[in-house]
Amino acid sequence: MRFITDRKTANGKGSAHSGTHEHKDMALTSIGLAFLMPTFLFIFGRTLGQPHEVVVATFGRPIPAIVTGLMVFLAMRHMMHGVGSVLADYTRGTARRLLTIFVNALAYLITAAVLYALIRMAH
């Protein structure tokens, strides 16, 4: 027996209060990452272990910089939802709220750090 009416579950944005936003954003960021990640892995793999000038020259070029920046931006959005689900499953109350704030702050910090590094190396 269902204790919640159809209207209640579907009313407005439903019991999640954000509709299907998280699910859709997870799918959309994963499609973006499916194209960007192999490209990024190749660029990074080829640059890892090279001297400083080569690293700066590589990530200063438009395509490696744009691929890296976009990948990190999407990956961090993807991570926020993913870790958000983990926290929703295993934590509750104040611990959940504080950990959610911490994870989101970390995601934005990493995105900002990468964009700063790429802008500084751009030539």
Partner: peptide, 12 residues
């Protein structure tokens, strides 16, 4: 990810 970001930031 954090290791990569640290490395990239250091290069910059």
């Amino acid at each position: 990810f954090i290791l990569f970001v640290w490395w990239l930031l250091a290069a910059a």
